[in-house]
Structures are given as structure tokens and as C-alpha cells.
Design a protein around this nucleic acid. Structure first.
Lengths: 222, 222
DNA sequence: GCCATCCCTTCAGCCGATCTTCAGGTTGGG
DNA sequence: CCCAACCTGAAGATCGGCTGAAGGGATGGC
């Protein structure tokens, strides 16, 4: 496809938002802008951004809260804009799972460079991942097994995309719980239940394997 | 237990290098340091870092040149340290394919946070250990002997990984009990039983040897 | 506003894999 | 030859993982 990556910009300062949107458009990205994160969930579902640029200082829910929302509801990358130069904010952002951050004021060219870098790192440029006869199109939101479409719930899709992004790597239930659910507390059964549902829908031959005592791995057996 | 990730630090200022190495060690990383990149190719091959921290201003080849070397010769991530605050440098670094950069002077905690973040983004790197025709991939959770997969239980895998991490080194049953099982009480037979099972699965020629009265050692006999 | 539906999460029972212990056999150094 | 060290098959206890079912919150149609 056109392979145009989509970037959602949530920034309340209109001048900055406009400049950023222009810069990103010039750089060849598909863009959308919002003054706040009130409709973030909906935007994630409809606009399906590959990356979300979040201002930390926002009316309503702040950038950190929105970061959680993005993580829970999509596989999009996150770039934080922080007005304060405080190390604490930056650390909090990175620990909270942001892919990168930028301190205001910034030069437009640098933001574009960082957006590009994050997208490249995330390997989001090609939105299609193939594993055996399984095909994930994160842009279109479709999953095909042997050419046949599979209906997944949001959680199942996030789980599958995460496993696919780490194919051939064993991921523990704890890792999955934190990166797919964003949970701190540990309830292995929650993961097991969703793995079970995912397997039922994915069908045979089995791609999603249990490594007893370690976790799960998406792998094509030879 | 996963093996610790390895970080190579190339930085000519000795005070900074020492501080960084200490901080990373405290954070649980395996580390190595160099004042310049003269032996980078060799280091990449022998130390097998998961991440390389590169100072941009270096005697001899500078950070950008070394970045290229890392990219060509390994799958390691790269974090650039730049003394200048100039946007140009930062852009050049990100465009050149660095996974992240940090502007000096920086707070040690932030460097550690960034190193952790980059490693996490990179998917924690496949740590592969080879001993003779035995290959352990702790990320993929696989063990191969002469190319053939071997099914191990969780305890057997931990035991083997521990022995592999200390290849050619005799480990007593007490040492194994404490480091693999975390037990305080001493039941040598418990270790013997698992060693026995491990040998059966690993097959011939024997890699796991008994040193009577001392312990066990993983070694390729000549 | 109300109801049907979907989905996430928790719970409980089941099953097989695995851990640990025990008992008896084997090995090797002195 | 003897004894301590080591090996290993077997078996009960325990654990990790799977799955059907049900509660409850959110969503969307009427």
C-alpha cells in the first residue's frame, strides 16, 4: 500500500500543533491533531495512528495518563513533548513506556527526525507481519490465517501483535501482563485465558506454543 | 533466569567512563569499557554486547564512524553520547541510525534508564551461548545439540544455563543448589538427579563432567 | 432508559508434567 | 578390598497450565 505512516498529535497550544502537523505532512506522514485527549480512545480506533505525539501538560488527562491509554488500546508508538526540562519528567516518561521524548522548545526538524526514528525502530514502516501462513496487518487491523480472516477482540489483537513483534522469543506471563495489559499485579490465569482464546481462533497447526515455566512464544515449528 | 545484557562503553574521558561502568554494573548489566574504538570490531566479536554506548567526540574514529561499524558487525543497539548540544549532531546521530542519544552532561540515572529502555525496545536481544555443538538461546528458550532441538524442563534449563555461564569452571553441588535452586539446605542427591536427567537429554559425547569430590563442569573434551 | 450483547476478568476443577525423595546399584580412589 | 561419592529408576506430592462457566462493566440498539 501507500505505506504512509499515521501520526496523531495531541497538543493544546494551537500554534505548536499547527506547526507540527504541517511539518509532519511535509515529511510525508498522514496526520491528525487534537487539542486534548478527550477522544483519544476513539481516535486510536478510527485513525489507527502508528505513533502518537503527546504533550505532557494538557487540560484534562495529562500525557502520562494518555500514554497508558495508548498502550492499552493500540500498538502505536508514543513520543512525549515535555515543556519542563526536569529529569524527573523524562525518566517518568521513559519508565512509563514512552518510545522517546522531546523537550520544548524544539526545532521542527528535530521532531520530524525523532518521529521517523521511532517509527523505524518500531519497525512500523511495513505494517504487515507474516509468520508462516499467518498475516497481521496492523494498519488495516486484519488478521488472516491461510488467507482466511480471523475475528479478534481488542485484547487478543494486542496480545497477538505483541507476540508477533517478538516472534521466536519466549515472553513470560509477567512480561505480557505489563506490556499488553499495563498491569503490575500478577495474575497468570488472565494471560492463560486469553492465550487459550487466541489459540482457538488461530486454529491448527499451532503457532502459539507454551514453554512450561517460562512463558509463550509465537513460532513456526519445522 | 535470563542472562544479563552486556553493554560496551566507548568513552575517552576516564572519569565518565568509570562512572558509567559503575552505574551500569549496579543496574545489573554486564559491562566492558574502552577509551576509543580502535578495537571495536574485536570487542563486538568477543564481548558480544547487546548495546554499545558511544561517545561522539573520540580520538581516532568518531562516534558516527563507529556507529557504522557496530551496525555492520552486530545486532547491538547504539546509544550516542554527545558533548555538544547542537541540533545538527543530534539529527545526524538519529538519522545515522542510533537507537537513542544523550547530551552531556547527563545524570547517571538517566543513562541507566535509557539503556534499559533501548534494550527493552530491542526485544532484549537473543543471548546465544555456544559450547561445542551445543547452542543455548535463552531468548528463544531453545537448546540445540548438533542442530537438533532438545526439550528441557525449567529446572534443567536453569541448571544448564548456569553451568554454561561458567563453562570450564567446576561448580560444587552446594554452589548449584544456592544459585540454581536458591536453597539453603544441602541435599546433594537433588542436584545429582537433575544432572543425571540433563546428561540423558544432552546425549553423547558427554559435555557435563563429574569432578569427583568437587562438583560438575561443562566442558568440551579435546 | 432499558435491555441485549460483547468482552474482560475471576473462579474452580481437572490433567499431566515436573520436582523431590527414597532406595538400591555402581564407581573409583586409597 | 572398602567406603564414600555418585548414579539412576521409581513413585508420591506438588505445581503449572488449560478450559468451561459465570459475574460484571461497557457498549449499542431500540
Amino acid at each position: 500500500m501507500g505505506e504512509q505512516a499515521r501520526v496523531l498529535v495531541v497538543e493544546d497550544a494551537e500554534a505548536i500543533r499547527a506547526a507540527v502537523l504541517t511539518g509532519l505532512t511535509d515529511a510525508g506522514f498522514g496526520v491528525a491533531g487534537r487539542p486534548d485527549g478527550a477522544e483519544l480512545e476513539r481516535d486510536l480506533a478510527t485513525f489507527r495512528p502508528d505513533l502518537v505525539v503527546l504533550d505532557v501538560m494538557l487540560p484534562g488527562r495529562d500525557g502520562f495518563a494518555l500514554l497508558e491509554v495508548v498502550r492499552r488500546n493500540s500498538a502505536a508508538g508514543v513520543l512525549l513533548l515535555t515543556a519542563r526540562d526536569g529529569i524527573d519528567d523524562r525518566l517518568r516518561g521513559l519508565r512509563g513506556g514512552a518510545d522517546d521524548y522531546l523537550v520544548k522548545p524544539f526545532v521542527l526538524a528535530e521532531l520530524v527526525a525523532r518521529v521517523t526514528a521511532v517509527l523505524r525502530r518500531l519497525g512500523r514502516t511495513p505494517t504487515v507481519v507474516e509468520i508462516g501462513d499467518l498475516m497481521l496487518d496492523s494498519a488495516a487491523g486484519t488478521v488472516l490465517r491461510a488467507g482466511r480472516p480471523i475475528e479478534l477482540t481488542a485484547t487478543e489483537r494486542r496480545l497477538l501483535e505483541h507476540l508477533a513483534a517478538h516472534r521466536d522469543q519466549v515472553l513470560s506471563k509477567t512480561q505480557l501482563l505489563t506490556s499488553v495489559w499495563g498491569y503490575e499485579d500478577f495474575d497468570p490465569n488472565l494471560v492463560e485465558v486469553h492465550i487459550s482464546a487466541l489459540r482457538r481462533k488461530l486454529g491448527e497447526p499451532r503457532l502459539l506454543h507454551t514453554v512450561r515455566g517460562l512463558g509463550y512464544v509465537l513460532r513456526v515449528e519445522q
